[in-house]
Design a protein around this nucleic acid. Structure first.
Lengths: 243, 243
DNA sequence: CTCAGTTTTAGACTCTGAGGCGAAAAAGTT
DNA sequence: AACTTTTTCGCCTCAGAGTCTAAAACTGAG
């Protein structure tokens, strides 16, 4: 046997090398509003401004794993119900210290969960951000937009809602996320018809101050499923029948 | 005046540095099929296999510009009607020579254009790819899926169709892209109702062998516009009227 | 213990608009 | 005049919006 790899000597990779960081837009519905997790920088540049959690990509690490690792120090990992790559920013000027590429992820935390976060981090309403560092403000908005779009044609709500919930709770979660009122009646009908949510058998009630106890619902699947929206572009069910 | 920048001395950026390349999934409808532009590697690794066009990110270059630059050597720049970032691949093993991050872009070329390409590059049916190098096969499929999804809820067809076209031509383009037959009748009504296409006044006919001359249509806008699909999640038009 | 009040769910209707499907009409060519 | 291809029209279905009402199930007062 010839020892070592069989690959012929390959030329060194021609390009430059770049610093790279993984960032997370962590979103959660709290207090009937959509919030994003930010931490306040304690050192220049942008000292005092708020930044997305994240950090440098590890030597032998994939980007998704890197986000998870960095988030582990900010929020409990098990609280992240969904993670999806958003986009990669490459503006050479985006970091005044030098060039750093950044790949941003969208991370969702279920409502109700209240992970411990370090003292320098806090949840901010995504519609009313504080002064942000770098390009993190626009990245956060990009994450918010992605979530809003996906809410309408996927079951991504599973990552925002607790494991079991009433329609009223779900309405509040959706309303907070999309940024405008949502009809509970329509929401219930549309989501059940699509097969996205289902009532639990042991429909019970958690608490209230009088009033009919609500049925508890749950999401049928807890992985992303897109509902085929436009019949216009589905494969036709019927073809001109052969004579 | 104090000379030089005012920023206090900042610590060096902590992370490693990574090679980074920009790749393009260049799609075009040709011969009634959706094709992707690939070039055949002439050297290891993956010698003889087909790869996406692209190359190393430049020192002071943004990713989008890098794709354009690398494409310029493969196809005429002006033939790229649309460019959009797809995703960033970070598997440490994706290149056997060493770690290279790759950011892929989706690039669309209008049907009818026939850019000169170098001798080692060729168009391949995206539904029947040859042996591909690295993870380029799955990236190409990812681009195809993105295009298919966007065809249904955006006007992205403007980048696939020539400046002016008949409904029949457009039907063929859509059918080739989505991979199944499309009804010309429905396509015309849906796209005009959405305000995506419009008939040209000088509706004329190019050629045929008998038959009614077709009206020439054009896309109203040649930048991406998404049509708000789900009224379910639009802001409600009516509120419970105050008494 | 019962009854009134409250709160919320759940279901019944109707209405609208988008899209699917098929056939007739239009406008050329041979 | 026959043929061909495209356009246009009408009808049907279905998803979703919006409104209203009945029913359910709890709280608290009498």
């Amino acid at each position: 046997m010839t020892p070592g790899p069989r690959t012929p000597p390959s030329p060194p990779w021609p390009g430059e090398r770049f610093s790279h960081e993984a960032l997370a837009v962590v979103l959660q519905v709290r207090h009937n509003g959509l919030h994003v997790l930010l931490w306040q920088r304690g050192a220049p540049p942008f000292e005092g401004r708020w930044a997305l959690p994240g950090g440098p990509l590890g030597d032998d690490e994939r980007l998704g794993a890197s986000v998870s690792r960095h988030l582990a120090t900010k929020v409990d990992l098990t609280d992240i119900a969904y993670l999806e790559q958003l986009e990669t920013r490459s503006d050479p000027q985006r970091d005044p210290r030098g060039r750093v590429l950044a790949t941003a992820y969208l991370a969702l935390v279920s409502a109700g969960a209240d992970p411990r976060v370090p003292p320098d981090t806090a949840w901010h309403p995504v519609g009313d951000l504080p002064l942000t560092a770098f390009d993190h403000g626009s990245i956060a908005e990009s994450g918010r937009d992605r979530l809003r779009a996906k809410l309408s044609y996927t079951n991504i709500g599973f990552a925002l809602a607790p494991g079991t919930f009433t329609i009223a709770q779900l309405r509040d979660i959706y309303a907070a996320s999309v940024g405008h009122p949502v009809s509970a009646t329509n929401l219930q009908r549309v989501l059940t018809r699509r097969g996205v949510i289902e009532p639990t058998t042991a429909a019970a009630r958690p608490t209230a101050l009088g009033g009919r106890p609500a049925t508890l619902y749950r999401f049928v699947a807890r992985v992303l499923v897109v509902t085929n929206p436009f019949a216009a572009f589905r494969p036709p069910s019927l073809f001109p029948a052969s004579p």
